[in-house]
Simulated scan of single mutants.
Amino acid sequence: MREFIGGCWRLAFLDDMVCRHELDGVMVKGGPVVFPPKKESIPYRFELFLEMYAEDTPEEWEKIYRQTWKRAKALRGK
């Protein structure tokens, strides 16, 4: 359980970073995508991921985390 909670924090941080980078400069309905401050966004994502992935198996969770890590790692090259 402790690993899952820590993983959700790491996933929240990675997901926030990836989304901010991927959506930077994107326009929706004539305006730019705007994110809340990280101090609000990351805890929100953490709670969301706790809820979303609570029923997943460790293998399913690992796959989700690995995919997000790959997206974050790919940003380093940009």
Results as ranks from 00 to 15, higher is better:
Lys38Tyr: 01
Phe13Gln: 03
Glu55Tyr: 08
Gly31Tyr: 01
Met1Trp: 13
Met17Ile: 12
Val34Leu: 06
Leu14His: 09
Ala54His: 12
Phe13Met: 02
Met27Thr: 13
Trp61Ala: 09
Gly77Pro: 00
Gly7Gln: 00
Asp15Met: 02
Lys78Val: 01
Cys19Gly: 14
Phe4Lys: 03
Glu55Lys: 12
Tyr65Glu: 04
Gly77Ala: 15
Val18Asn: 10
Pro58Cys: 15
Leu75Phe: 09
His21Thr: 15
Val34Ile: 13
Ile42Ser: 02
Pro32Val: 15
Gly6Asn: 07
Asp24Ser: 13
Lys70Tyr: 04
Glu60Val: 04
Lys39Asp: 02
Glu47Lys: 08
Ile5Phe: 11
Cys19Tyr: 00
Arg10Glu: 05
Leu14Ser: 09
Lys73Ser: 05
Phe35Gly: 04
Arg76Lys: 12
Ala74Ser: 06
Cys19Pro: 00
Pro58Asp: 09
Arg45Phe: 11
Lys63Thr: 10
Cys8Phe: 01
Gly6Val: 06
Thr68Glu: 12
Thr68Gln: 06
Thr57Phe: 05
Pro58Asn: 03
Gln67Ile: 08
Phe46Met: 09
Leu14Ile: 07
Leu11Ala: 02
Glu62Met: 03
Tyr44Asp: 06
Phe46Ala: 14
Asp16Met: 02
Arg66Met: 12
Ala74Phe: 09
Lys78Cys: 04
Lys38Phe: 05
Tyr65Trp: 08
Cys19Asp: 10
Glu59Leu: 13
Met52Lys: 11
Glu51Gln: 14
Val33Tyr: 00
Pro32Arg: 14
Ile5Lys: 15
Lys70Met: 14
Arg66Glu: 01
Arg10Asn: 07
Ser41Leu: 11
Phe49Ala: 09
Phe13Ile: 07
Glu60Ala: 11
